[in-house]
């Protein structure tokens, strides 16, 4: 039945549905308004609730393949943490995570909060192989897995790490994850084992439905896909920029919502056409019989 339409037409349609809004957006600079859903609002509130100077563990569990969805989240989260004068301790369970973390640090901290000092106000402890094994170990001994920061300084000498021996010592943990190991493993090994700890997750669309079953119990808040990123971006912008114009770095997710809309509309149109064809053919067959 699908033979009636060469799938390449569908591909062409999708290409135009995504490419044209990007160009339109690039020329006009317009974005759609966002109203936050509860899981995104919960993320925002959890960070707002922390007292100034609290240390937050932030894990970059993704790589370039998913940065389209996750980098805007990381950027907004980092901006929010910095604005609230919280201290992120950055780690990664994916080998390419630290590079993404460095990018976020360079864009947000070095660009907009140049007074913050590495080792005191934030730190990147880099990547550790072992996936969920790492999570298991940091449950009891954080420094065993992350003995040095990314520039090689032992964590014992970093003021930001003072008194932190296990993952439970952080009041808040954020994972930005694209798959395995990621949100699910953080829930399994960290959130379940440390009842007092607050876990937030930024996840890709594909993980969202699975991770949803942990919210709001084992997972206090979540940012689901680019929509979650856009909502969070809007929340943070409203809190920090107010009426001023938000710098383009912090509108990335909202800019991506226009291609999103047209992509979705195309898909819906395709489903409707597919069904219309199906039912008309079925009707014809029934008449023929």
């Amino acid at each position: 039945m699908s033979g009636t339409l060469d799938r390449r037409w569908i591909y062409l349609g999708m290409m135009l549905a995504v490419a044209l809004p990007i160009l339109w957006n690039g020329v006009t600079g317009k974005t759609f308004p966002e109203s936050p859903t509860p899981p995104s609002q919960a993320c925002f509130d959890a960070i707002e609730a922390l007292p100034e100077g609290s240390r937050v563990l932030m894990s970059f569990d993704y790589d370039p393949a998913s940065e389209g969805e996750l980098s805007p989240m990381a950027t907004s989260l980092m901006r929010h943490l910095m604005h609230k004068r919280l201290k992120p301790v950055v780690i990664a369970l994916w080998p390419l995570g630290p590079t993404k973390a460095e990018e976020t640090i360079a864009n947000v901290i070095k660009g907009d909060f140049p007074d913050r000092v590495s080792g005191k106000d934030f730190v990147n402890l880099g990547f550790q192989t072992g996936g969920e094994g790492v999570l298991k170990v940091i449950g009891t001994d954080f420094r065993k897995q992350f003995p040095l920061d990314r520039s090689g300084t032992p964590v014992d000498r970093l003021p930001i790490m003072e008194g932190i021996t296990k993952v439970g010592d952080f009041p808040l943990v954020i994972t930005i994850s694209a798959g395995y190991p990621g949100g699910k493993e953080w829930v399994q090994y960290v959130s379940s084992a440390n009842p007092g700890l607050v876990l937030l997750a930024g996840v890709t669309g594909v993980q969202a439905s699975q991770i949803y079953s942990y919210y709001p119990g084992q997972l206090r808040g979540m940012l689901a896909a680019i929509k979650g990123a856009a909502e969070y971006e809007a929340l943070v912008s409203a809190a920090i920029d107010g009426d001023r114009v938000t710098p383009p770095l912090y509108t990335e997710a909202r800019r991506r919502m226009a291609p999103q809309l047209f992509g979705h509309l195309l898909l819906i149109a395709l489903i409707i056409i597919g069904n219309a064809v199906y039912f008309s053919q079925r009707g014809r067959k029934a008449v023929a019989q």
Binding site: M14, I22, L23, N25, G26, G68, A208, I226, Q260
Partner: peptide, 30 residues
């Protein structure tokens, strides 16, 4: 799950077009 994943995939496609339009072709400059 399908609906949510579609979101993610389109965002990734958008990111690739952005690479082509912004970084390579210099068509737009958001």
């Amino acid at each position: 799950a399908f609906g949510f994943t579609v979101m993610g995939r389109i965002a990734l496609l958008a990111a690739r077009f952005e690479f082509l339009f912004i970084d390579w072709l210099w068509l737009i400059d958001p």
